[in-house]
Write a protein that binds this DNA or RNA. Structure first.
Length: 309
RNA sequence: CGCGGGGUGGAGCAGACUGGUAGCUCGUCAGGCUCAUAACCUGAAGGUCGGACGUUCAAAUCGUCCCCCCGCAA
């Protein structure tokens, strides 16, 4: 089958590699244009572009999806579009181009967590399982009929980064199965139950700000689910303090203020939350590197009674 | 040329504005105390202060250039 692949971020790379391994013909890879970003606003390419270039694939980076772009895609006469975290909603006029259909690999158990950041939100919301879903695309975001779905356990040791990696591999495997079935024409489509739908919008910086009056469990999930960006953070002496790794400590904090430092030791910096406490294991002050709690304590006067806010 | 912070014994930091003996916490090593210890006490080793050039009687500190690290923003 002739395939056109749409993808941009790291999550899409495994799927692209998988397709490149199959006998399908990859007519073209479409990815977002290079953008100026990062420190000093240097121009940088997407993870998918880097991969496609490595494989020597034909690449397109349209600034926007306009009629002339759609025309050039039509000429490729693709059977299937595979879309994996491309970064834009594709219009109906583009989705209808391929002979068979356009499919999308989404990192959640649809209809739950529709949107740009399903992996992050599944962790932040404290889910103990998630997965990947492959849908036949329609013009509405993540609302197409389900072709295949696979579950995976979310472990307490998982962060968005580790889960992203696992799901990208799982998604690629599932994609290979689906492509094989599509070629044989034995796929079943299942409609999503929209009543069960939840949204997982792109994270904002403020999603990383810690509210210490929340239960320790919530803060633990927030810390895991916002890595690597925006990360969870608080403020100490007016300086940004990023909190990279924490552990929930069960204890009575009724007499303490939320955000109050209870104790500091090599084991961690213990902070009172709305319910129970958090032991900070790995943290980073603005301008500094990530430090373990014991390293941090050596050089910073952070002591009992100080309030993080 | 997007904005800003930083590089000081092995680790993390202070000192810099107001140039003049290299400081703190931890670690390491030796000894002591102790039934014992990651605890406590005493002592020791370990630094051309990121690099180069310049100003000066004298530079971690002031000036110029370069290298590396980090946060924000996008």
């Amino acid at each position: 089958m002739k395939i056109v692949f749409f993808g941009s971020s790291e999550f899409a790379v495994e799927s692209l590699k998988k397709i490149a391994e199959t006998k399908n013909e990859l007519s073209c890879v479409v990815t977002q244009p290079d953008r100026k970003k990062g420190r000093h606003l240097l121009s940088s390419s997407t993870a998918v572009k880097d991969t496609a270039v490595g494989f020597g694939l034909k690449l397109m980076q349209p600034a926007k999806i306009d009629p002339s772009f759609i025309e050039s895609i039509k000429k490729m006469q693709a059977d299937i579009f595979v879309v994996v975290s491309y970064g834009l909603i594709l219009p109906k006029s583009l989705i209808s181009v391929p002979r068979k259909m356009a499919i999308n690999v989404h990192a959640s158990l649809l209809p739950k967590y529709r949107g740009a950041a399903p992996i992050n939100w599944a962790i932040i919301k404290g889910e103990n399982k998630t997965g990947v879903t492959i849908i036949k695309m329609n013009e509405f975001m993540d609302q197409g009929e389900i072709i295949a779905q696979k579950e995976i356990e979310i472990k307490t040791s998982d962060t968005s980064e580790t889960l992203n990696k696992k799901l990208s591999v799982l998604g690629a495997e599932s994609l290979a199965d689906v492509l094989a079935k599509l070629e044989q024409g034995d796929t079943e489509l299942k409609r999503q139950n929209s009543k069960e739908a939840t949204l997982a919008p792109k994270l904002k910086r403020t999603d990383g700000l810690i509210d210490w009056s929340k239960p320790a469990e919530d803060i633990f999930n927030q810390t895991r689910g916002t890595i690597p960006w925006p990360g969870s953070f608080s403020y100490w002496q007016g300086k940004l303090l990023k909190i990279w790794q924490v552990k929930v400590v069960t204890m009575d904090v009724a007499s303490l203020k939320p955000g109050e430092v209870i104790s500091t030791s090599k084991e961690g910096i213990l902070v009172a939350c709305g319910d129970n406490a958090i032991s900070i294991k790995l943290l980073q002050l603005e301008s500094g590197r990530k430090l373990t709690a014991d390293q941090f304590i050596c050089g910073h006067k952070i002591t009992k009674g100080i309030i993080l806010s």
